[in-house]
Computed example of a mutant assay.
Amino acid sequence: MNCEALIRNLGFRCREVRSASRRGPVYALDTPFHFPDGEAFTLYAVPHAPQVVELSDNGDTLMHLMGLGFPLDDRRRWRGLRDLCEKLHLSLEERGDVRTQLYSDDLASGIEQFGYFMHAVCEWEVEHRGLTDHDHVFIDEVEVHLRAWKPDLTITRDISAYGASGSPRKFDFLHGDTLVDAVRPSSQKTGAELRKVLDVANGDDERPILVIMDDRSDAQRAREETAILATVARVMQMSALIRHAPVVSAIRSH
């Protein structure tokens, strides 16, 4: 056993790779970090000016999430990822790569930043991986009714709030000053929502939280899940939201 073998056994490996966009060397650093499905996370180090190096994920994080079906092809949906990067002093570029520049002597701190980044991304992925096409349609429906209910309030999609854990917690909307999530009734989603709401409630974010529960296909199940969530947040049934938005209801009934 020696230092080189020890580093290799910890999961770090470095190899030079070719880049079509630059003439100089690019080094791929295989790390021990993995996404929840086992896909490895690789960092790319690009030397710039003397003693300056750029670390980048080469867009792999965004491509990984999109490959799982997350609707991130629209840059307007990158807000949560961008907020996380800013908190960790990383930048999310227009091409979708996460990067930072630092002096060579600070390389260890840069790798540490990406370690925190990977941990937060993996938590977010596990929390949201169960979303189906029906969930995304429901979220879009909730947005339409929220706009009709209170048209003077601004709505922003995909907002992050930071809880006591320090990890970003994504909400579907910011409606005025209220964090809003659209939830379809299931024990798995209720459990995830409980953890999220409690984390944010125990942090420094004082914005109110509203959960819209879809009660249209299984009213009894929706009532059961609502009773649990109502202990920590305000919950509104989707049928009630529709009644609050008569213009939308009238249009959809024709």
Rank of each mutant, 00 (worst) to 15 (best):
G24F: 12
V26T: 14
D30Y: 11
T31N: 00
F33Y: 12
A40V: 13
A40N: 12
F41G: 04
T42I: 12
T42F: 04
Y44T: 15
A45Y: 05
A45E: 10
V46G: 08
P47I: 12
H48R: 12
A49T: 04
P50F: 09
P50S: 12
Q51A: 11
V52M: 01
V53A: 01
V53T: 08
D57L: 05
D57W: 00
D57H: 07
N58V: 14
G59T: 06
G59F: 02
D60Y: 10
D60S: 15
D60V: 09
D60I: 03
T61A: 08
T61D: 01
T61R: 02
L62H: 09
L62V: 10
M63E: 11
M63I: 00
L65Q: 01
L65S: 00
M66I: 08
M66R: 06
P71N: 02
P71K: 02
P71V: 05
D73C: 07
R75Y: 04
R75C: 06
R75V: 09
R76M: 09
W78S: 08
W78F: 03
W78I: 01
L84R: 07
L84T: 06
L84D: 09
C85S: 14
E86P: 01
E86K: 01
E86A: 08
E86H: 09
E86Q: 02
L88N: 04
S91Q: 14
S91A: 15
L92V: 05
L92Y: 05
E94F: 10
D97C: 14
V98C: 06
R99N: 09
R99F: 04
Q101A: 14
L102V: 10
S104P: 01
S104A: 15
D105F: 12
L107R: 05
I111V: 12
